[in-house]
Structures are given as C-alpha cells and as structure tokens.
Simulated scan of single mutants.
Amino acid sequence: MARLIFLGRLEDIAGTGEMSVASGPVEHILAALDPALAVQLLGEKVRMALNGRLLTDMGGIVLGEGDELAFLPPVSGG
C-alpha cells in the first residue's frame, strides 16, 4: 500500500488528511478517486511531493509499497 496526503483545502475536499491506496501508476490511482477530487488534485497550481521531495515532472509516477505522495495546494497569505 501507498499513501496519499492531502494538505490545506485539499484535505477539506477529500474529507480526510490521508488515504491508503494500492501501489501503482498515479494515473490509475487518481482514476479510482471521486472525479471531483481528482480534478482538484490535478489543478495546475497543485504541487506534488513524493516521499518528501517536490516533483518537477508529474508524468509517469508509479507509487511503490510504502511510498507517500503529498498534494500541496497553492498557499495564500497576507
């Protein structure tokens, strides 16, 4: 199993801070999620971090056993 981590407003949309998923290609994992959540996770301003390292290329990611993929929404402040 791998884990998806949802931060900020994405946690509100997902209804949870994390979710266990079967290992495999991220495209397949996202396709199995609620479509409204998947659309938000694929937003152009959402960044991803695999095992604590920010990803610059989002294509071809395959989650292995024990991997953690975090979704980081844009941050706003004042």
Rank of each mutant, 00 (worst) to 15 (best):
D12C: 04
M48E: 05
A38M: 07
G60W: 03
E68H: 08
G15Q: 10
M58C: 06
G17N: 10
L54I: 13
L50E: 05
D57S: 14
A22E: 15
D57G: 12
E11R: 15
G43M: 01
P35C: 09
G17P: 03
A38Q: 05
K45D: 15
K45R: 14
R47L: 15
S20Y: 01
V21R: 02
N51R: 07
L54P: 04
P35F: 08
L33E: 08
G60K: 03
E11H: 13
D12F: 03
A38I: 05
P35Q: 11
D12R: 11
L7S: 04
A31T: 07
L72W: 03
M58T: 13
H28N: 13
A2S: 15
G66M: 05
L42T: 12
G17Q: 09
V75R: 13
G64H: 07
G43E: 10
L42F: 00
A2E: 01
R53T: 13
F6R: 00
L10D: 04
L72C: 00
V39F: 06
I29T: 07
K45L: 14
V62L: 05
V39G: 06
G15T: 02
S20N: 12
V39I: 13
L37V: 06
G24I: 12
L37E: 03
M58R: 15
F71K: 01
D67W: 00
H28M: 04
M48V: 08
G15L: 09
N51V: 09
A31E: 14
I29K: 01
L69A: 07
V21I: 10
R53M: 11
G15K: 10
L37I: 07
S76H: 13
A32R: 12
I29Y: 02
I61S: 02
M58A: 12
A31R: 09
G8I: 04
N51Y: 06
E65C: 10
L10W: 04
